[in-house]
């Protein structure tokens, strides 16, 4: 469970998160959308403290994320983060990428970690790529390895920051399929994406942001078909014509 309580964040004078109050119950699939620069990435990056906040509080599984005494390692081990640019380690094979954190953070044995890693690779449909280096994989395959790397820590929460925006159109489907199957498994997910198909299929809720504020939230069909605010309507018409 994730809760934002009056969260504010500034980059110098720029007010990127403006009084965010948000409750994400366990198992929810939340899609976050909004125009470029509205603060979507910043919002989810605060959840595992990749970014500090200046005011308010974020609580994840009873832990106050930004309190100095919080055990960040434990917190981060429970949260998977998927980046737009994958960020696989280029000097390691797919298998080594996936095993790194389980072995060194969870301190499980290499044998055990390899078993889990192979399971997760199979889960994303890439069993045969275990020994490939990132440079030998397509964008879609790299992103699926990154998802397998996140899953190997058995996180309760997965955060995705535009996981398909860096992909060629023909590879978007394979990544979304993996994400849909995760969503159906009941893992808590926050996904920054403009993939309306994905949102309509599995999202419990869509959140629309603009200028650091939450403008509107609603069920995906309500949001996309009957947006309540002008700004959301405007945004949706733009991604439709896109």
């Amino acid at each position: 469970m994730i809760e934002f309580k009056g969260v504010n964040k500034w980059f110098d004078k720029l007010h990127v998160l403006n009084q965010i109050n948000l409750m994400i119950p366990k198992g929810e699939v939340l899609v976050i959308c909004g125009p470029s620069g509205s603060g979507k990435s910043t919002l989810i990056r605060c959840i595992n403290k990749l970014e500090p906040i200046q005011k308010g509080e974020i609580i994840v599984n009873e832990m106050s994320v930004h309190k100095p005494t919080t055990n960040l390692t434990k917190l981060r081990a429970e949260i998977g983060f998927i980046f737009q640019q994958f960020h696989l380690y280029p000097h390691m094979t797919a298998l080594q990428n996936i095993m790194l954190a389980p072995v060194n953070v969870k301190k499980i044995t290499k044998v055990e970690a390899e078993k889990i890693a192979r399971q997760k690779l199979e889960r994303v449909g890439l069993s045969e790529k275990a020994d490939s280096y990132p440079a030998q994989l397509s964008g879609g395959q790299q992103q699926r390895v990154a998802i397998a790397r996140g899953l190997a820590m058995s996180p309760e929460i997965m955060l995705f920051d535009e996981p398909t925006s860096a992909l060629d159109p023909e590879m978007i489907g394979e990544v979304l399929d993996v994400m849909v199957s995760l969503a159906l498994e009941g893992i808590t997910m926050c996904v920054v994406t403009h993939e309306m198909g994905f949102a309509k299929k599995v999202a419990d809720r869509v959140l629309f942001m603009d200028e650091g504020k939450i403008i509107e939230t609603g069920k995906p069909t309500d949001f996309f078909d009957n947006p309540k605010t002008e700004r959301a309507a405007d945004f949706i018409s733009k991604i439709l014509t896109h």
Partner: peptide, 13 residues
């Protein structure tokens, strides 16, 4: 790449 460092951070290393 800073992104890899963030990937490491976010997995708890």
């Amino acid at each position: 790449d800073q992104g890899q460092i963030e990937a490491g951070l976010s997995s708890g290393l």
